[in-house]
């Protein structure tokens, strides 16, 4: 059924890109409220058309390419950044099997038996876009931002991967569908609180969000790896960053908060979509809240936190979980 796949892919990509547009609005509104400002309120009622206005503005901006930039890489880098962000959530289920008349289909794009590994693989190659953007701009701030991003992302990937192992061991499967189904009675956040905290912290570092947004620190690097970018190419980086936020929220909700599981989801499969949306919404709100609250941490502290705190704790968590699982015969 190639049409089924096409429609599902289209739904996924369109929801992610629309989600990106409205997460930017959400971030601006929430930040404004926390800082006792009003926030965007001009375009449409309560600023609801603001993302569209931003998009139109960005389309008409001039595209600048620095003279000494590596032109091919400079143009390709934003694309390399966006594509992993768009495809990584393909393995996450949106709900149980949907049945309309005689036609029934699982809600979700792909249920593969190595789903968690797929997520790891895509996150591990998503660092290239940022690194190459920094390098190809031929600008020292951009290069420094790209280097920082690389170092940070490969450091936190380890802790992130080990945080995945907790839910995987509890569910006994690498498939995200099985992990979500295993949380029917109890979400894994209660069984794996340590892994949850590690996932949350490491994922913030992985997507370069505050308080780990060193690669784009305005004060020291002007804007980091995307300082030379303008117009739609800049918009692509922006899009990648926000889509990564949504993806982290969706994957985290599926691994620890029970994904689409919730009351009455068996009777009404479409409710699964709503539950997943609400959980992801809550997650995004917390990410924005943290950005508004916490200051950026120093770079050496960031590395020390990743290697000397999160990584050993994650390793110990895996060990303890495995021993307990063997003892209780899970």
């Amino acid at each position: 059924m190639i049409w089924e796949w096409l429609i599902k892919s289209l739904v996924l990509i369109l929801s992610l890109t629309t989600g990106f547009a409205y997460v930017t609005l959400m971030e601006r509104v929430v930040l404004a409220r926390i800082q006792v400002r009003i926030g965007p309120n001009r375009a449409g009622p309560r600023g609801i058309l603001q993302p569209i206005a931003d998009a139109i503005k960005l389309i008409f901006k001039e595209e600048l390419i620095p003279t000494n930039a590596d032109k091919f890489m400079f143009i390709v880098a934003p694309v390399i950044t966006v594509i992993p962000a768009l495809v990584v959530s393909a393995v996450v289920p949106w709900g149980p099997t949907l049945t309309i008349g005689n036609f029934s289909t699982p809600m979700g794009l792909a249920d593969i038996n190595v789903g968690v590994l797929y997520i790891m693989a895509i996150t591990s190659i998503s660092v290239y876009g940022i690194t190459l953007a920094g390098w190809s701009s031929n600008n020292k701030y951009a290069t420094l931002g790209g280097l920082r991003a690389t170092a940070q992302m490969i450091s936190y990937e380890l802790a992130l991967g080990l945080a995945f192992v907790g839910p995987v061991m509890l569910a006994g499967s690498l498939s995200i569908n099985s992990i979500v189904e295993a949380q029917k009675t109890l979400p894994f956040i209660l069984l794996q609180p340590v892994a949850f905290v590690i996932y949350f912290t490491a994922s913030l570092a992985e997507i370069n969000r505050a308080p780990f947004d060193m690669p784009e620190a305005e004060q020291e690097l002007t804007a980091g790896y995307h300082v030379e970018y303008s117009g739609m190419k800049f918009a692509l980086f922006f899009m990648a960053e926000y889509i990564k936020m949504i993806t982290v929220a969706i994957i985290g909700s599926s691994l620890f908060l029970g994904g689409y599981q919730g009351p009455f989801v068996d009777q009404y499969p479409l409710l699964g979509f709503v539950y997943l949306f609400l959980k992801a919404f809550l997650w995004l709100f917390v990410i924005i809240w943290i950005r508004a609250t916490l200051p950026r941490i120093r770079y050496d502290r960031l590395m020390a936190l990743g290697w000397k705190v999160l990584f050993p704790i994650a390793l110990a968590n895996v060990l303890v979980t495995a021993v307990v699982l063997v003892l209780i015969g899970g």
């Binding site: 593969i112 038996n113 190595v114 590994l117 797929y118 790891m120 693989a121 895509i122 996150t123 591990s124 190659i125 660092v127 290239y128 690194t131 390098w135 290069t143 790209g146 280097l147 690389t150 170092a151 992302m153 490969i154 990937e157």
Partner: peptide
């Protein structure tokens, strides 16, 4: 062989080559 395939991407294309790139840029 999806497992081998994705392990290949994670380990070689992801981790090791990023280090190569990092060292060359640095």
């Amino acid at each position: 062989a999806p497992f081998i395939s994705l392990a290949q991407v994670t380990v070689y294309a992801g981790a090791i080559m990023v280090l190569f790139l990092f060292v060359i840029m640095l």
